[in-house]
Design a protein around this nucleic acid. Sequence first.
RNA 1: GGCGCCAUAGCCAAGCGGUAAGGCACAGGUCUGCAAAACCUUUAUUCCUCGGUCCGAUUCCGAGUGGCGCCU
Length: 318
Amino acid sequence: MIQAVALSGPTASGKTSLSLSLAEKFGMEIISCDSMQIYRHMDIGTAKAAKEERARVPHHLIDILEPSECYSAEDYAKDALACAKQIEKRGSRPLFVGGTGLYLDAVLRGGEWQTPPTSPAYHEKYEEQTKTEEGRLALYERLLTVDPVSAAATHPNNVRRVLRALEIYDLTGISKSEWDKKSKEQKGPFDVAHLTLDAHDRDFLYKRADLRIDEMMKAGLLEEVKNLYGKGFLTPQSTAAQAIGYKELRGVLDGKISLDEAVEQLKLSTRHYIKRQLTWFHATDAVRIYIDTEDGCERSFSSILSDAEDAVLRKFPD
RNA sequence: GGCGCCAUAGCCAAGCGGUAAGGCACAGGUCUGCAAAACCUUUAUUCCUCGGUCCGAUUCCGAGUGGCGCCU
């Protein structure tokens, strides 16, 4: 078992600065767990740690792909595990830091029972069919006969998940629910201290996020987006184009919406994202570290840091 | 001052005599791999106020209030 620490939490909760101090304190190396910081040329909008910050502690899995390249949770699990093994060999612990819950789950779960990768071709095959109500229902009905357990857990409207479950069955002859069962039974490769940042007052988090977006705009986010599209690094159908900020600002470049509207939209998308992240991390057994007091006031960095250190030491007394 | 139009949830908005569509926001949730994605659930005992007609009014009539437009 590889001993590891994980620091999760929603956007703008302060993961980056806390991770640096925590890594320095315990001599850990950081493995980013962020589906968008993976991509090069997307720096401002994904709030990557600055160059000087990254010089303080070794960072991994940032800037490893071009924005046009495909990547998935499965790829991440492989890459992150390889990274973690090397860090362990160097005699230190990996510190997973990021807000992509699925990616974090994927590495920590690890093991033999990994479902086959998605093939874009499979999904394209059904693109026409999923456009109509009847088509979607037919797919769902097929899933109902092939894998009733997964069907029961999936809403018929959630085409992506319905297709994915069908794909796994068609590719392997084994139902997705069967794969999941095996996967749950196996032990992951990590012994992990999972900390997650949280706030008593949701608005406290939202305000921080709004503020950070204003700073991103000042730092030249629009230029960054313009460049990405201008140089053809980013295409509308790539995964990277789904990134918050990049998709909203594209409308400005096309003259479809005003800059003010786009920024409002970007703030809204960010709030929605924060909410989904909180839902995800609340469902984990992570130790919650609050960035505000119970009456919604800001806590000092040093007290947050000392909470985090305590949580790590409780798990690994050294 | 006169005439016309409008007033429905936090916002936008349909309904125009039979018991309040829809969208957005908010809130809650799902998640085994495109996840910064995709998807789900929930939200007006009441329609600006008062009076009238009617078995029944958000809907029709009158008055008031507020907003918008046009005219003098």
